[in-house]
Design a protein around this nucleic acid. Structure first.
Length: 221
DNA sequence: TACCAGGAGAAAA
DNA sequence: TTTTCTCATGGT
């Protein structure tokens, strides 16, 4: 069992996911903040509200009063916290002169900048790095830690950075020197497949052929 | 009714 | 430094 063989199993089971479900890079960034500890179906309602009210731009969110923004994103939960985080992020994004200026940064500088925003933690930063800026950064979420630890590939108490580093080093033999573009494509699919698999089996089925992400399932115990 | 969801940051120990 | 608490709606 390796990171790559799990990936192949998931890909065979679900097929390519073509993530992230968004129309623009900025929408990816908004979704990454709104989906923190929240089901995507709820995030979709908030994104739809922002779009319907023509507030889905960094400038409008930056200027929008807190209460109005909180009301528009109510469906995705933690609306007061997330309104603050979205405004923090948009203010920083505009101060950095937007997408093109940020995209000109090297990967390490871009990640450091994202993490400097209050409300953007490791996973949210990496979502944005991978899905909005196409950088070769693997996203670690609760499902990722659960599936890899249950399969015995990592310790269940491994930290975020340690797991990400281990994955990126071992996923594909570093000596093969695959291009950053191909790495991005694989990381993009892999994280999406883990989430889709988690949503599928956590709710609808007692166990699966790859692992089981359901906390209440006896598989892998 | 109880649990969980594509976390993060502050406070407490 | 590590653990615990808070934030909250919506689906199952």
């Amino acid at each position: 069992m390796t990171f790559f063989s799990v990936y192949q199993k998931l890909l065979n089971q679900y097929g390519p996911q073509q993530w992230w479900p968004a129309e623009t890079p900025f929408e990816v960034m908004v979704g990454a903040i709104l989906t923190q500890n929240t089901a995507w179906t709820n995030v979709e309602k908030s994104i739809a509200q922002l779009r319907a009210k023509r507030k889905l731009t960094p400038q409008t969110i930056d200027r929008l009063p807190h209460q109005q923004l909180a009301e528009l994103i109510r469906a995705s939960g933690y609306f007061n916290v997330k309104a603050t985080r979205l405004k923090n992020f948009c203010h920083w994004y505009l101060a950095q002169n937007g997408f093109d200026a940020l995209n000109a940064l090297d990967t390490e500088s871009l990640r450091h900048g994202l993490l400097s925003v209050n409300g953007v933690g490791s996973e949210t930063a990496d979502d944005i790095m991978l899905y909005a800026f196409n950088r070769p950064v693997f996203v670690v979420d609760a499902y990722t830690r659960r599936i890899f630890s249950r399969l015995g590939l990592v310790d269940d108490k491994i930290g975020y950075e340690a797991l990400r580093d281990k994955f990126e080093t071992e996923f594909i033999d570093i000596k093969r020197k695959i291009t950053a573009e191909i790495r991005v494509a694989h990381y993009n699919e892999y994280h999406a497949l883990i989430v889709v698999h988690g949503k599928d089996f956590c709710r609808t089925k007692p166990r699966c052929e790859v692992c089981c992400l359901n906390k209440q399932c006896g598989f892998m115990k």
